[in-house]
């Protein structure tokens, strides 16, 4: 599972390759705990659908993003 919630419920972690299917669980986590932080340092590849959830929900991010392209082009200008 590349999306998981830390036990304390305050942090959601994206780990490794995050394909399209991860968009839904990520969204559910963010809906359940809107104040949670998102740690995407271990994420190596982000699918568009997953990024879209992040862009829409705008959680507090713990970075830098492990996906270098996303870090370069999204984390620094868009978010």
């Amino acid at each position: 599972m590349s999306v998981r919630r830390e036990d304390d419920g305050t942090t959601i972690v994206l780990d490794g390759h995050c394909p399209v299917e991860e968009a839904e669980p990520l969204l559910q986590f963010l809906q359940a705990s809107p104040a949670a932080c998102l740690d995407w340092r271990q994420c190596t590849h982000l699918h568009t659908a997953v990024l879209q959830v992040i862009l829409a929900a705008r959680p507090q991010l713990i970075g830098p993003c492990g996906d270098a392209w996303v870090q370069r082009w999204v984390a620094s200008n868009v978010l």
Partner: peptide, 11 residues
């Protein structure tokens, strides 16, 4: 966020 459809691309 509650109404977001994660599988409809809106970008």
């Amino acid at each position: 966020v509650a109404d977001l459809d994660p599988f409809a691309c809106n970008l």
